[in-house]
Amino acid sequence: MATGFFTDTTLCIGCKACEVACKQWNELPSDGFSFTGDSYDNTVELSGTTWRHVAFVEQIAATPDGVEDRWLMSSDVCKHCENAGCLEACPTGAIIRNEFGSVYIQPDVCNGCGYCVVSCPFGVVDLIDSLGGTAKYSTANLQESRLDASKTALAHTGGVAGKCTLCYDRQTLGMVPACAKACPTDSIQFGDVATLRERAKERVTTLHARGETSAQLYGADDIGGGIGTLNAFFLLKDRPSVYNLPERPVLPSTRQPDGYAAAAVIAVGLAIAGWAIFRSA
């Protein structure tokens, strides 16, 4: 049975509890303290050490009419794709699909090659720099005696890829992932993906009936590009690109046959040309 997230952005109040609960449970450092001026978003994006990220989109009408103004908030997370680019790309097998159907990075296996980073069509995975050596991270509230690769979710020496584990370790205890548990308004719902999908579809019907016709699901059904469905899918109030989500994501490995074929054609061509050149008198 696959488990996943249904993130219903119509219920999100942008409180960022998911971000903090995630960091606390997964013993992740903060990514540094800089003010962006981009609405209330100062964590900017998902990173190797930020596994939930709340996007803020201000849609303010030019005229102070008070009707059309919207401030969209959405908690982004790893999509745990049915066909996952990162998982396919990982050369060490550090990235696996676990018994909950989640895409999981084994931090003790990962060697930090960074190939998963460029293989994610959603820009989710990233490398964690060495925690000790840079001023980037603040580990002030991590238990010092647990700063040891064998105990924590990410190897604390860094140098590996990081992303949402769908709280694999919590799921082994039958617990709900930290973000979904914290979320005060149930914007993040966790459960059996099939059940969540049904619930999401009903929700869209309800919203459409209320006149919120721009409400749409993202990833509940096959999203195309060879990726299939997403175990962490979303209900959005606007087009995906508004939330910085790709409208047309593509599974990178689908491009391989073409690539190898093109290379083979050129190789054979050059070999023939070479044969002609070298073996002529």
């Binding site: 509890a17 971000e19 903090v20 606390q24 509230n141 930290a178 914290a182 005060p184």
Partner: peptide, 8 residues
């Protein structure tokens, strides 16, 4: 449930 402060 908890808010961000409570989660911290």
């Amino acid at each position: 449930h908890l808010c961000p402060k409570g989660s911290a």
